[in-house]
Amino acid sequence: MSTIESTPTAPPPVQPIHKRRQPPRRTAANVAWIVGIVLLTVVVLYPLVWMISASFKPSSEFGSNQGLLPENPTFDNFIKVMEGVAGIPTWRFFWNSTILGIGAVIGTVISSSMAAYAFARLNFKGRPLFFAMMIGTLLLPFHVLIIPQYMIFRNLGMVDTFAPLLVGKFLATEAFFVFLIVQFIRNLPKELDEAARIDGCGHWRIFWSITVPLIKPALITSSIFAFIWSWNDFLGPLLYLNSPENYPLPLALRVFNDQSSASDYGATVAISVLALLPVMLFFVIFQRFLVAGVATQGLKG
């Protein structure tokens, strides 16, 4: 820890001397950083590498061969998985998951950031009560809500459509995101808002032109989570979707692993690996935007 001396963010141009000379301690710190992070990466990624390698094992090797490498490597698992299920091509499941994921991102980011702005910046009657209620919705295990929520969507005639899976996202029902964004907004200097207000900006303008650009890291984070959680959601699609052509990946994946008929472990792992690729790609793209927000850049002067 003590070796880390320089500033965590990119060294500012204010101190050019610091940057040019490269004192030996700094090189040592760099080496320690690289060694440490590479070791950590190996440990963290090993189970994933094992999983990818396992997707090349024939199903019969599961259980008997717990090692990293397959004894009889095969592409059959992927071939089988790509053949689809009951005449429905596998890309269809990917497509459904993608639509649901994008919908979840759009809905969550818009509705949650609006609610968060209200909670963090606006003084209105009932705010403490509503805030407590929002935290309260996080506390109840969802299993006891399944049946009444199902009844609501059934009575609205929305079963077997994507609506029950997306409506909640557009109504900020996941308090996680609202609270996350609240925390980021509260950390912004209020002077910005006040300055804008003096300049005659309304709340909508302040929200849109000042707050939103400044909480970009929080919004990017929310987008990432909203997409990934939607991508991996199993229970919602299970309850609300009936037609197999509407199934997203987590439902389709189960079909390769029915214990009561015959489980194909090779195919199960193979489709899990395939399902990982698009979310991985999504993360890799979006995390690039996870850079210093406008506030810190703008303040560098």
Partner: peptide
């Protein structure tokens, strides 16, 4: 403004949660 910004959340709270 507070209730306006909170509107979607409120609808979700009362209708779904």
């Amino acid at each position: 403004a507070g209730y306006a910004f909170l509107a979607p959340w409120l609808v979700g709270l009362f209708a779904l949660t």
